[in-house]
Each structure stands twice: as structure tokens, then as C-alpha cells.
Design a protein around this nucleic acid. Structure first.
Lengths: 171, 171
DNA sequence: TGCAAGTATTTGAAGTATAAAATTTAAATT
DNA sequence: AATTTAAATTTTATACTTCAAATACTTGCA
């Protein structure tokens, strides 16, 4: 913050800062994107090889696991950030595998509620334990303090993004 | 749950630390994933509305833009983290739109090189400028120092993940 | 009562994604 | 030269993705 004294040192920093600062967000985004892709691909591969499941199916089941009474498809769509039309097919396939079941409540026949079957709960339990261990393994070289800081700072990014969206959608 | 009279303080901290630390990586991953999805969806929407392009197409063109002589499809696959088979269709559609062209070099007829057409370069140039501005806008509320730190720390995560992959693939 | 307006889900079309098998061409062996 | 091995891409099959339009049901209100 010292612009004082002789005054030439900071000029360099300012000039450089202006150039770099311009693309800083882009660089961060590209790195976030490639890192997320990398992890996703690895998790996807392991889910497939060890449990015969896909990542979207895992995500969907994770939501149902913590709401044992089940969830409406629309609510499932919001929580998984998957479009409505997509949830339909996802639940359909899981129902065929006997992991999820659909039912229409008496009150409102427009609604479909999806919930895990006993088989689904058991299956997901095993996957969730492995999934958590995989993440610890993949991030093993990162200092826990850094992990905590990243969690906080990415939260700030998320808030900013949420404040500048063009359409709808919130967190 | 105290195990001894005198030495219980640290134990609690340790136990709690172990519990929390256990899921820290999972929490970070979930936040990274949801934030990345959020930004992707917004970028996707804007690319579609303002340029009639998709995100994968944009990514692919970005690679070709910085390699004016063109790239082999295999190389394109690595750089975009998109599978081989998928690159084929992606390039095919871009060729139909006249943004990309394919050619087979004389030396090796197994190879296909894709490069941007003049129209493709012009089109991408406009998109890239907008894209960069969008990211600055979306992250506008985040302190530049935090952006820089995130870039560095996510780099550490990426390295760790690369060191613990089960199959192949590097950065 | 009756129908316009709203809500919840499904369907359809085009594109993107993966893994794995198949194809084509090149290089290395024998 | 014929055979094997390897490399680069395409094809195939299935799943996931989005957006937009269609369907089915509910509600509010004249």
C-alpha cells in the first residue's frame, strides 16, 4: 500500500498488476474448470469400475439419501442442478435398476416423488463411503489449512457469481 | 466421553479435528463442483443467446485459435479433455457451420488436422472478448488478491490429484 | 360452474459424454 | 513381401445434457 517515498517501485507493480489483473479471472476460471474436469473424470471412472454407477446417478441418490421420505422431481432438479427433463430420465433408469421408486401423492396428482429403495440405500451407503475416501486420497498432498481456505474463498466466488447472473437461479 | 482428568482438552480438539478434517475434502469438492456448474451454466447460456455457440465448441475453437496451423484431433482431444470419439462429432458440426476445416496431411494419411477458417477466427475473436469480460463481471465482488491466491491453491489441488490418479492422464 | 392462468412433469430434438470395438494406415519383424 | 504391432481416427451403444414445446393436473376467480 506504500505509494510514498521514492515512488518508482510501485509503478512497476501497478503496471504489471493492470496487465495481469485483466486476465486473472479468466486464468482462474480455466484452472477451476480443468481441475474440476480432472477430478470428475477420475471419480466417474472409479464409480463405474467399482460400482457400475454414473456420477449423475450418484449425485441424485445422494440427495435422496438425506431425505428418506423422498423428494419431488422439481426439488431434485434444483438440488442437483440438473434440468427437469433430465431428472425424468435419470430417475427412470434408477427405477429400472431397483434403486429408486416413484410415487404420486394423493393430494396433488401432478407431483411425482422419488425415494430410495432399501436396495438403493444399501448401494448408496457403500458408494458414499468410497467416494469420501477417494477425495481424501486425491487431495492428500494439499495442506488441510489450504483446503479450509479454498472452501471459504470459493464460497466468495460463488456468492459473487450468484450476484451477477443474468437470468434466474440461486443457491 | 473424557478419557482422563488432566489431558482432556487436547483430546477433544484432536477428535473434533479428526472428524472435521475427515470431511473437509469432500466439502471442498462439493463446493468446487457446484460453483463450476453455476459458472458453466451461465457462460453456456450467454454463449448460446449471444453467439449461438455451445461451450464445448467454444473450448475447441479456443485451442485452434492459438495454433493457427491447426491441430491433430488426438491433440485436440487431450487439450480439451474431451474423448476422441467426441472430438470427431464436434469438429464435424463446426465444419458444417464453416468455422473449422479438416485436412489430411500428405505425410501420414491416418492423421486429420483441424484448423479455423477465416470465418471461424473472426467468430471466435468476438466470443473470446465477451467471454473474458463475462468472467470479470461474474467475479467482480472477489478481491483480486483472493483471485490470485485461489489460482495458486487450486494449482496445488490439481497437482495432488494428478499424483493420485488410478489410470493414465497428466497435466 | 367454467375456464384462464399457473404448476409439475414429460416428451422431443439436437448436442455432448463415455467406453469399447472397428477401421485405416504406417512402421517394424521375419 | 507377408505378418504383426502400433497409431490415429471413426463408429457404435448408451447415457447425460439443454432448451423448448406439450401434457396433465390444480387453482383462482368471474
Amino acid at each position: 500500500m506504500a505509494e510514498s517515498e521514492s515512488g518508482t517501485v510501485d509503478l512497476e507493480i501497478i503496471v504489471q498488476g493492470a496487465q495481469e489483473g485483466k486476465k486473472q479471472e479468466l486464468r482462474l476460471w480455466l484452472r477451476m474448470l480443468s481441475t474440476t474436469k480432472l477430478i470428475s473424470q477420475e471419480i466417474r471412472r472409479r464409480l463405474r469400475n467399482e460400482f457400475g454407477a454414473t456420477l449423475p446417478q450418484f449425485d441424485l441418490m445422494a440427495q435422496l439419501y438425506r431425505e428418506r421420505e423422498g423428494l419431488r422431481l422439481g426439488e431434485l432438479s434444483k438440488r442437483t442442478m440438473v434440468t427437469n427433463g433430465n431428472v425424468t430420465g435419470l430417475v427412470e433408469r434408477l427405477e429400472i435398476d431397483g434403486l429408486v421408486l416413484r410415487e404420486t401423492p394423493d393430494g396433488d396428482r401432478r407431483v411425482t416423488v422419488a425415494k430410495l429403495t432399501a436396495k438403493g440405500e444399501e448401494h448408496f451407503g457403500a458408494m458414499a463411503a468410497a467416494h469420501e475416501a477417494w477425495l481424501r486420497e486425491l487431495m492428500a498432498d494439499v495442506d488441510p489449512a489450504i483446503i479450509a481456505e479454498l472452501w471459504k474463498d470459493i464460497g466468495a466466488v460463488k456468492s459473487s457469481v450468484n450476484n451477477h447472473l443474468s437470468g434466474a437461479a440461486f443457491d
